[in-house]
Design a protein around this nucleic acid. Structure first.
Lengths: 105, 105
DNA sequence: TTGACGTATCGGAAACTGTCGATATATTTG
DNA sequence: CAAATATATCGACAGTTTCCGATACGTCAA
């Protein structure tokens, strides 16, 4: 007699996979990690990742599209912040596994 | 004065991203979900995902390569099980966000 | 208006990924 | 031994992702 398994439906897993793929990039992880600790403009995030601004903008667009982030325009700057509350616990898991280093002390 | 941020080093984030990419596939998520609840042979996992066995084998190889799984050969079958303890909490986060449906009740 | 700044978008090249069919290996059975 | 079973690997193709340069857009200051 087979044991009954608790499984998520494949359709939901496909959605989850898409979100994970969006998260699965070193610069995007860094941006999320920053945004979980405050609100930042595109240029600030780009500088922190040592990326040209257009590429940072593109990464942010991807994360916004899957519901992770939202943006607010202020003057000529655009500030992003975390919109998906579960991001915090997911990043926590990742940090538990891969470590966290304070940037300066 | 800039607030000190708690950030993971980019190199570690690159490793994390690679692992997340490996996880970011509906069939692989399903397999991990099963393997967190027991030990399964390639054929059983393939059947549960409605995949040809060779493809299941390939997915399992990827997850083994990044340390998520280990395998034990028994006769002509190969049983896989979870090797990375953090997988459980990560899947928990994903299930919290995307829902879990018992396969049968 | 002009110019500078901050952000967004477009097009294309290179690299990577998922999938499939075919084949290979190892183990058990007859 | 040969045949059947279970898993693994290989080659190739289509599709996606990443990155970059160029360009476009919106806002502010002079």
């Amino acid at each position: 007699m087979a044991v009954k398994l608790r499984l998520t439906e494949l359709e939901a897993l496909a959605q989850a996979a898409e979100c994970l793929r969006t998260l699965a990039h070193p610069h995007r992880l860094r941006m999320v990690q920053m945004l979980l600790q405050g609100r930042y403009a595109v240029g600030e995030l780009a500088a922190a990742c040592k990326l040209p601004t257009p590429m940072a903008s593109e990464h942010l667009r991807l994360m916004q599209r899957c519901g992770f982030l939202t943006s607010e325009k202020e003057g000529r700057k655009v500030y992003y912040r975390v919109a998906e509350p579960h991001l915090k616990s997911i990043l926590k898991c990742i940090e538990d596994r891969f470590g966290v280093t304070p940037a300066s002390r």
